[in-house]
């Protein structure tokens, strides 16, 4: 699904990301952990073609993402509030994204129905603009919008932060369902080691832009990660 070849990103002569090779196969749930400045968001932005690589390529379905529109129809992503159109109401925003994926209003109703639990009556039908919602609810809106197009590739940057405990648990269940039923490829970063080991089957640790660990999740992974990050 995703191939990374000789990928480098350099800002002011400082290399912030350097991945010689990385393959993420179809249907894999890929978790990215690392301290602040490790290059997680930079990597996601490179995959989404929002910044230009200093060297190398990211390929989605063997096509480079740079200067290309093809990957957009099968990718859902939410990194930060810049991915929301904050002067719309949530419904308007969902319908806008739905139209971009040629969804009918029946499709949208099904979608709203499936999100009912996750939204917990706080989001739909409030006639509030997205910019007036709390950070946690904005995050829910962003994650939900990323799922509208039935993406084959889902990219979420720290989806658990700012969510309330119940929503965190719901989101975890939700992501696991997507994983098992739809077989979508997921790229998720998190600072919470518990969550990420519960959701992802493969976990990569980044430090200062370099991959230092590439683990397949099993019962020891959490301990291994915890001892790695212990100071």
């Amino acid at each position: 699904m995703i191939q990374v070849k000789n990928l480098q990103k350099v800002y002011n002569e400082v290399t912030v990301l350097d991945i010689p090779a990385l393959n993420i196969s179809n249907g894999e749930s890929f978790g990215l952990v690392g301290n602040n400045g490790a290059g997680k968001t930079t990597f996601f932005r490179l995959v989404l073609d929002l910044i230009q690589a200093s060297k190398g390529d990211v390929l989605v379905d063997s096509e480079p993402v740079a200067q290309n529109d093809n990957w957009k129809s099968m990718t859902g992503s939410f990194l930060d509030e810049g991915f929301l159109i904050d002067f719309l109401t949530p419904e308007e925003y969902f319908n806008f994204v739905g139209k971009l994926h040629h969804k009918s209003s029946d499709d949208m109703n099904l979608f709203f129905e499936s999100m009912k639990d996750f939204f917990n009556t706080e989001i739909l039908g409030t006639r509030k603009l997205i910019r007036d919602f709390s950070k946690g609810n904005q995050k829910k809106i962003g994650i939900a919008a990323a799922l509208i197009g039935n993406p084959r590739l889902l990219i979420l940057d720290e989806p658990f932060t700012a969510l309330d405990p119940s929503s965190q648990i719901r989101l975890k269940r939700f992501l696991n369902e997507l994983q098992s039923q739809m077989n979508i490829t997921m790229l998720i970063s998190s600072h919470d080691l518990n969550h990420i080991t519960e959701v992802c089957k493969r976990i990569v640790v980044l430090e200062k832009g370099i991959i230092v660990k590439d683990l397949h999740t099993d019962s020891d992974t959490l301990n291994e990660l915890q001892s790695y990050f212990a100071v």
Partner: peptide, 14 residues
């Protein structure tokens, strides 16, 4: 500019 990332990653050809 506020939602540029949204327009760039959604299914909108340039």
């Amino acid at each position: 500019s506020g939602h540029f990332d949204s327009l760039m990653t959604n299914n909108i050809p340039i």
